[in-house]
Design a protein around this nucleic acid. Structure first.
Lengths: 340, 340
DNA sequence: GACTGGCACTCGCTACAGTCGAGTGCCAGA
DNA sequence: TCTGGCACTCGACTGTAGCGAGTGCCAGTC
């Protein structure tokens, strides 16, 4: 059964009121607060239909209606327009991000900004290593059999790892190694390095072969496979906003999920492009987050995403406002990183 | 008025029972669960004295007694002995920390381990830069007017920062800069570098002076003054353990405090030595943490602390067990870092 | 046919009274 | 100094009643 315009207007009004007041909304207060041009009784009939279709529900008989996840979905897809940011918000974003001195700083400022503006939990993924290019590889001898490998990516990320060599190595050999590795790998995307690294081993002189083999293993392991992705988190205190009504009484599962980097990456970091994604309640694949919604987007120069960022909050959130903020922040961060 | 041995035994019993059950403890159940050798009435008299002295209190008339912060303090100082760890716990610690590949890894594993063993929120400070020595400084040209400075400390910490030079610089000059900086600074403690950095500027050739001045500013700013300290956090979900009884109903202030690195550093990182500190409730200077207790200690090779670590939980916590765990973990981490 | 006013009904919330029981303070006696 | 006994307190729980927001339905109107 189709929903006519008025029914949609009623749904929109319900979502807006519920988000604002956090209380189930009834037909009477609805007509009072919105110019629907009809009587409460009519609204009630519409509500009955909306409920039958699964867009709203009653917490108890004789309470007002509350949007369901499906209702929010319809609202987000068809009934809301992205709110333009207020000038104050724009200024806040600019001011907050100006003066960041390095990538860590950018990421931390961004995640705090996002948490503050949306009053929710914010998550920012560091620029993905897989999509970064190698700018420089530095080998620093720590002892005769130990090297520290430092990789600097064009996105500003710096990763390091200690390498235990099979045998002692001379400073000259380290210099050679450094030169070889840099010649081969500089400028290539990390995702493309595995064959290059293999080639390095194959082409190495017998003298360097042992060291190169160990080094290559570590490079592949650390930079390509392992904890290549990192995230920053802020605003967990915002979860306590709105008492315990949101999140059906327990923050536990949410906090647990937030601590699992892998989970968060899945949520935030999957975006390949800079489109905005909204996951509402049940749509979430992570059980712990069934009571939450996530608004996320990719950021980066142009339309390709270097990484993802987003916020997590109760399903009862201000979607238009949140979406606008997330997008705006992502755009600014993208520009900022492009400058480097 | 002094407290005789039996009164102290009563206090100990009250603390132990309350920590275990989380319910106010009465005189009758007390004599049932502990071999005090006296009747409930006698215990009641003792309790009256303990209450008068401020060691315990009644939530309401006619409920059992609950320890006050002062009571916990006395318990920790005089009535409890540090529990030896179970073999299982020792094994868990070893297993958890073996196989860590770099400092980040060590810190993350440690903080997770601590959270898991104590079932509380764990905080681990990265080895303090101020107390680290410079192992190597690397300068990587990003463009003709930009350098990335990477500092590697003997503790394994790696910090980087982008430097915008006043004018273009040649690769040869970069090499010279790198050599000069390393000759001067390698091996010295970061806290001692400011005069050395100044000397570098003074001694620089006219050609390098401009670059060196900028570089020195950045070095001082980034490495000595600014975000020199970092922390890792884990186990926030443990705050929800024990319902909302702990933390007087709101996690808000706790979560807020946990997000403030500065606050956490003050709490965890002040220790200069590897002695254990216990802060109970009110003793805490941070208002937001008035309902929490913190057990912290320094870790490092020998008795000098490289950094601090600790846990935060409700005042109603198992102090002997927590103290033992925190100490044991700190010792292992210290050993682990000494190996590098 | 769509909308409206009216009406009976539901049910959560609050207030109030009553009961129960854990725990206390006090006191006289051993 | 300790103990048993006793009266008392007060929170927790239960049951009842009234209130009110909100609903569904129906007959009537445009």
């Amino acid at each position: 059964m189709g929903l006519d315009d008025r029914k949609l207007a009623v749904l929109r009004a319900i979502v807006e009121d519920y988000v604002a007041t956090q209380e189930p909304v009834g037909s009477k207060s609805l007509v009072e607060r919105h110019q629907l041009g009809v009587s409460p009784a009519t609204v009630r009939n519409d509500m009955a239909v909306l409920e039958e279709e699964g867009y709203i529900r009653q917490p108890h008989t004789s309470a007002g209606r509350v949007p369901t996840d499906r209702g929010y979905r319809l609202f987000v897809d068809r009934l809301s327009r992205v709110k333009p940011l207020s000038p104050a918000e724009r200024r806040a974003i600019e001011r907050f991000l100006v003066g960041a001195v390095d990538l860590d700083d950018v990421v931390h400022r961004t995640v705090r900004l996002l948490a503050q503006l949306t009053r929710q939990v914010a998550v920012v993924q560091y620029p993905s290593l897989a999509r970064s290019k190698v700018r420089h590889l530095e080998l620093v001898p720590i002892s005769t059999t130990r090297l520290m490998v430092v990789m600097i990516a064009d996105t500003g990320r710096v990763e390091q790892r200690l390498v235990e060599l099979p045998g002692p190595i001379s400073p000259e050999d380290v210099t050679d190694l450094r030169r070889l590795v840099n010649e081969k790998l500089c400028g290539s995307r990390l995702a493309d390095t595995p064959p290059l690294v293999q080639a390095l081993v194959d082409e190495a002189t017998p003298q360097l072969r042992g060291a190169m083999t160990t080094l290559s293993t570590v490079l592949l392991e650390t930079l390509v496979e392992r904890h290549e992705e990192r995230i920053a988190l802020a605003g967990t205190a915002n979860l306590t906003r709105g008492g315990l009504l949101d999140f059906q009484g327990s923050l536990r599962p949410i906090l647990e999920a937030l601590e699992e980097e892998v989970v968060m990456l899945k949520l935030i970091g999957e975006a390949e492009s800079t489109t905005t994604r909204v996951l509402i309640g049940d749509e979430n694949e992570i059980d712990n987050l069934r009571a939450a919604s996530v608004v996320s987007t990719g950021y980066g120069p142009g339309a390709t995403a270097l990484g993802g960022l987003g916020v997590l909050g109760p399903t009862r959130m201000d979607y238009p406002g949140t979406i606008a903020t997330v997008r705006a922040v992502a755009r600014y961060v993208g520009e900022l990183l492009a400058q480097n």
